[in-house]
Structure formats: structure tokens, C-alpha cells
Design a protein around this nucleic acid. Structure first.
Lengths: 345, 345
DNA sequence: CTGAAAAATGGTAGCGCTGCCATTTTTTCC
DNA sequence: GGAAAAAATGGCAGCGCTACCATTTTTCAG
């Protein structure tokens, strides 16, 4: 074998690996050690001004993009936060998400998202999948999960935030409001205004546990007054939809002409019901009163603002995210709700 | 130093590291090599039935959750997809997201999301941040980006999908529809129906480039007919809102009482305008015609369905994600749009 | 000017997994 | 029964970075 002069010996040097620029390339280019580059890039540890500038220049010239996968593995502290939401279409979720995201972003965290479609089994799978990215925190909706999902969340050593609901037992941090109380408040409000023959239009209760809790609270109060819900109609739609409310309303009224109020599982359905009334000359609230849940923007801007209950959704996300990142103790925060009388009851 | 008998020599063995269960623990417990465990867990490579079962049993018993950070680093192929969206609140985005997410999830990908709030600078930062997670693909909204953002997306070696718009030059894969054409179609529709004194209610054009393109197309057609937009009103709201439309509409009508049609930059605003009319006894479409954009569910369920343009948003997300993952060539797909005549014009 | 403290810097062993290759075991076919 | 092919398995070097420690350089009081 021919012996090459020293300068031709090919060392396994950083510039070999074509394609991606690594921290080693930057170090080489700046003529410094890797640790120093790492310190500069993370802005952590002391580095002289000139060295810092040399490194930043080299990094910029090479279009260096740090590899956080490697960084995360090395430091075993990730800047990822897992988020499992039941749906994206729903108006509620994006608002909570927006609140949470603002906080996460400020703190340099990146959300990894999964959508469960209100399916606990899917949720379980998503939680497992997301945990495998070793996030610093995990946000999920609601308190109801499969046993295994709960076990994973308890045992994974990651802070967990359960959002939107406080009626039940949480795992770690819980930020939400009481849906049962909201249902009760709705019933009390309607009863106080003299309504007695109240119908209910809802959507699939199995998938939306929280709507179920509201209904439960509503029923309780009715019973306490020796009354019952006159009739109910369930929209088959998954998630909530205006169309579902419209159809549900039509069906309900077909069967029961003497109702004086209708309670909807949420504002989307209520708006559908409202449109049905508008179209069919049913006078609101004289012929019929309507009551929803969520306090959606649009429901407050209809010619007659909808009577509904509003929760501080953005704040919920914000507070939850802050607590998740702050490392405080496990606790439950009830952010409460506000009953908006509106003009439909 | 005392010499310990061999059995007491503490090797750096897997069970040392208390806390997190690693693949090495599983291997040890199952009495096999790490590679074999890896093969079983990834379902890749041949392993005998009994070994496989032994390993799965061990993994289950130890509650092993794989560390994908490590896996990604080792294989340098990640199962992450970056998504940068302009907003979550917007109804359009969740639908596209839902379509994309369905495909991504089926393929075992996890979305890492960033929200730019329609700010190109923020978008740039988010893109950089997300690229540092070394995703397999990147989805962004629209074709307008800062130069640096574009450079990063071109140079990062990752497939890029630009969604929602096809009016302009794309980086890699583009799936969307022409907003300019949509604007043109809207104008042609209104003109064909005999409307001539047309007003415009929009929101901040700088932040929503696509609304600007629609307006541009609309104007073009008007000019081709030697007409101009009679008057316009811009809602100051960031993003679109029903309230903005309502106020904008009120202001516009205050100034111009003789309009026969109003073109809105989107359905949210149009609904606001519609509500304003409902409330003020303005008869639609006799006194005034309305035209929106998006084909939102709710806009089709109002007592008079809104005239609007609808794009296949879920399909857009789905198709885009499929193309992103399929590894096909760079291309532009125009998914088109559908003009829905409605009852408001 | 000297010694000690402080600041700046480099070397390197992992983080937990995968990809490759070497080795061992099993199967297959004359 | 034996050679060759196929299947099953293990070993180990990285992936790119960070944490830790060792070393060098600078600063500064006395």
C-alpha cells in the first residue's frame, strides 16, 4: 500500500459528512471548540465577546440550524409540550389552545399535537405516542381517560395538565370550570324566569362527557323543583354543528308544540335552533326561550344575543400553561363561568 | 484497594440508571440483545415468534415507552411534521388541519405546530424553530414569506408544502386554490345579476394576503366593466370577526345609502353584515345583496344562505399531506373552488 | 511583579436508539 | 447427511449535542 504523506491522510473530520451543517462545522469554521459553540448558541456560560461574534458569524455563514433532537437527547430536557385535543373544528379548543400557545411560545416551547376525535382509545394511543417524544409537559382535555392512559400520565414523570373541566379527579394540574354547576345555573336561570316546559337538544353524550355533565346538573335542578325535562332530541352529529341543532330543534318542536324553552348542549346547536325559529316565524323569546353554552362570539352578535354561559377559555389555556411550566404543586383551579342573560330567554 | 470478587464488580449496566426504562432494560429482562428488541418494537427485520413474545412481554411489564428522540437521532428520519399556521381561531385553518392530520396520523406522524398570527417575521422564527426538530416535512400557509424563511425552506432538505393559495411562486409542493380567480368569479357573479353599486367590507389586508388577492381579482373584473368599487370599509380586527363585519357594514351604509351589493372579504364579516341587515330591517337581497368567501357551515344555514365561494378545505389538507409524505415531485395543485349562489344576492 | 481568583475555552463521555455487519442457528434441498 | 441458503440474533459505532471536568488565559489585589 502506498504511504500517503501526512497531509493526505483523510481524518474523519466534520466536513466529510456532506449535507447537514452540524455544530462541529461551526466550531471548526470559527476555530474554537464545540463546547464553546454550544455555550454561545444556548447563551449559557461565559464566552468572550470576540469569540461569541466569531461563532455567530460562522453559524450564520454556514446557515447552521441547531439539531434539537440531539440537544434534547443529550440534555434530557426537551422543549416540547404534548397537547391532546378532542377536535380542532370545535370553536372552544382553538381558543384554549391560543391561550396556551402564547405562553408556551414565550417560554420557547413547541407544541406537539394529537387529535383524539373524542375517542378515549385514540386518546390513549396519542398520549403514548406523544410521550415517546419525551415532552416536558402534557396537556389533555377533560378528566376522563382510559385506565392505561391515566397510568401512563401518572407514571411518566411528566407534568400533566387537564383542561376544561373540574368535575372529577385529576392527575396533576387541573384548570377548568364546573360543567355540572353550569348546567345547574342554566336550569335555575330558566326556572327563575318562569319557564317550566323545557326541552333539550344535545349531541352525542358518550363522546362529549362535559355536555353530559351539564345536562346532569340541569336535570338535578329540575328535579329539585319537581320538574323534568319535557322532551329531548339528540343530534347524531359527532362534535357539534349548527345543522344538528337546526334539525334537532325541528324534530323536537314537531313532537312537542307546547314547550316554552329549549336548553341546548352548546351554542352551535342553539344557533341552529335559533335559525330554525327565525325561519319559521317562531318568536323569541315570547313563543320560546333558548339557552346555550359556550358564549361564542357569533351567538352574542345575532340580532338577539343568545342566552348562554361563557367560560374564560383563553385564560384557561394561559393559566394552565403557566402552571404546567412553572413547576408548582398539583392543584385544581376552577376558573368559573359567567351566565350571559342574552335576549333569547 | 480491596479487590472485589467478580460478581460484585459494578458494571455500568442498564439497571443502574434509575427512573426511565430504556430499551436496554427491556433487552436485559427479555434476555436478548438490544438490536433484537429494536427490531421487534419497530416491527422491522425478522425475529422468531417466541423471542418476539418474550420481548413484548418484558416491554409491557416494564411499562417501556420508546424514546423517539433517541430513535430519530440514530436513524436521522423523524416522524415529525412541522406545521405553521397563521391562526387557530380562524375556521378555515382547523378544517385544513383536520384533513392533514388524518393523513399524518395514519402514517404515524406527529405534528409540531407553530402559530404565526399572520406575522411573517414570527413565521420565519417559527420555521427556524420547527426545522430544528428535524421534521420530515413542513407545512406552511400561503406563498408569501420573508426571504430568509424561503431560503431556509429551500435549503433545509425537507419537503415543504404550501397550502391554501396558488397565486404565486411556490417552493416545493403547493396545494390550494386561486384567490384572484375567486375574487374575479365573485365580481362576475354579482355583475351578471345586475348589481352595479358594490361596496366592500374587508379586514386588514396586510396581514391576510389572500383576502387582498381576492379583492384584486374582484377589482380587475369591475374595471374590465368600467366600474369601480363604490366604497370600502376595513375592519381593524386582526383575523376576521363577525363583529368587525357588523360594524364595517354599519359604517359603510351610513356613508353610502345607495349601494345595491356588498362584497365581504370573508364569511365571518359577511355574517356580521347579514346580522346588521336583519336587525335593521334591510331586506336581503332586495335592498342589498351580500357576498362572502369561505362557504362556512354557518353561513349556509342562516335563514337565507349566504352567497359565497367554497373551497375543499379538508381535501386540501388531505391531498397536501399525502403529497408531502409520498415523496413525489414538486408541483402545484389547484383544487379549485365552488361558487355557492345562496339567497343573499 | 506575583499569586490567586475569575473568566474563557477545549476535550470527551455519554444521552437511547438504529444501522450495519458478523456470527450463530435453523431450514432447505439434493 | 451435508452444503448452501435463509433466518435469527448480538455487538457496537455512531447520530449531534450537552454536561462535566480539566486546562489555559485573563484579571486584579497587594
Amino acid at each position: 500500500m502506498t504511504k500517503l504523506p501526512p497531509q493526505f491522510i483523510t481524518l474523519p473530520d466534520a466536513s466529510d459528512h456532506q449535507g447537514v451543517v452540524t455544530l462541529a462545522h461551526v466550531a471548526r469554521r470559527a476555530g474554537v471548540g464545540e463546547s464553546t459553540v454550544s455555550r454561545v448558541l444556548r447563551n449559557h456560560g461565559s464566552v468572550s465577546r470576540q469569540t461569541r461574534e466569531k461563532i455567530l458569524k460562522a453559524a450564520a455563514e454556514l446557515h447552521y440550524v441547531p439539531n434539537r433532537i440531539a440537544g434534547t437527547l443529550a440534555s434530557s430536557t426537551s422543549k416540547l409540550v404534548g397537547i391532546v385535543i378532542p377536535s380542532v373544528g370545535n370553536t372552544v379548543v382553538p381558543e384554549v389552545l391560543a391561550g396556551a400557545n402564547a405562553v408556551l411560545e414565550d417560554a420557547g416551547f413547541q407544541p406537539v399535537i394529537g387529535v383524539s376525535n373524542y375517542d378515549p382509545v385514540r386518546e390513549e394511543a396519542l398520549i403514548e405516542s406523544i410521550l415517546s417524544w419525551r415532552p416536558s409537559g402534557l396537556m389533555v382535555a377533560g378528566l376522563e381517560h382510559t385506565d392505561r392512559a391515566r397510568d401512563m400520565m401518572k407514571g411518566c414523570g411528566v407534568r400533566v395538565l387537564e383542561l376544561l373541566d373540574v368535575d372529577g379527579e385529576g392527575i396533576d394540574i387541573v384548570v377548568g370550570s364546573s360543567h355540572r354547576e353550569a348546567g345547574r345555573a342554566s336550569a335555575e336561570f330558566l326556572l327563575a324566569r318562569g319557564y317550566r316546559r323545557i326541552g333539550y337538544v344535545g349531541h352525542d353524550m358518550r363522546s362529549d362527557v362535559r355536555a353530559g355533565k351539564r345536562l346532569e346538573g340541569f336535570r338535578q335542578v329540575m328535579e329539585e323543583h319537581n320538574l323534568a325535562i319535557a322532551d329531548h332530541e339528540f343530534s347524531p352529529d359527532r362534535g357539534s354543528s349548527v345543522q344538528g341543532g337546526r334539525i334537532g330543534m325541528a324534530r323536537l318542536l314537531e313532537r312537542r308544540r307546547n314547550l316554552d324553552a329549549v336548553y341546548f348542549s352548546n351554542d352551535d346547536l342553539a344557533i341552529g335552533g335559533y335559525f330554525h325559529c327565525l325561519e319559521n316565524g317562531i318568536s323569541i323569546p315570547d313563543d320560546l326561550a333558548l339557552f346555550g353554552y359556550n358564549g361564542l362570539e357569533i351567538a352574542r352578535l345575532t340580532p338577539q344575543p343568545l342566552s348562554t354561559i361563557r367560560t374564560p377559555r383563553v385564560a384557561m389555556g394561559r393559566i394552565g400553561a403557566q402552571m404546567l411550566l412553572s413547576g408548582g404543586p398539583a392543584q385544581v383551579i376552577d376558573v368559573g363561568f359567567e351566565l350571559i342573560p342574552g335576549a333569547t330567554s
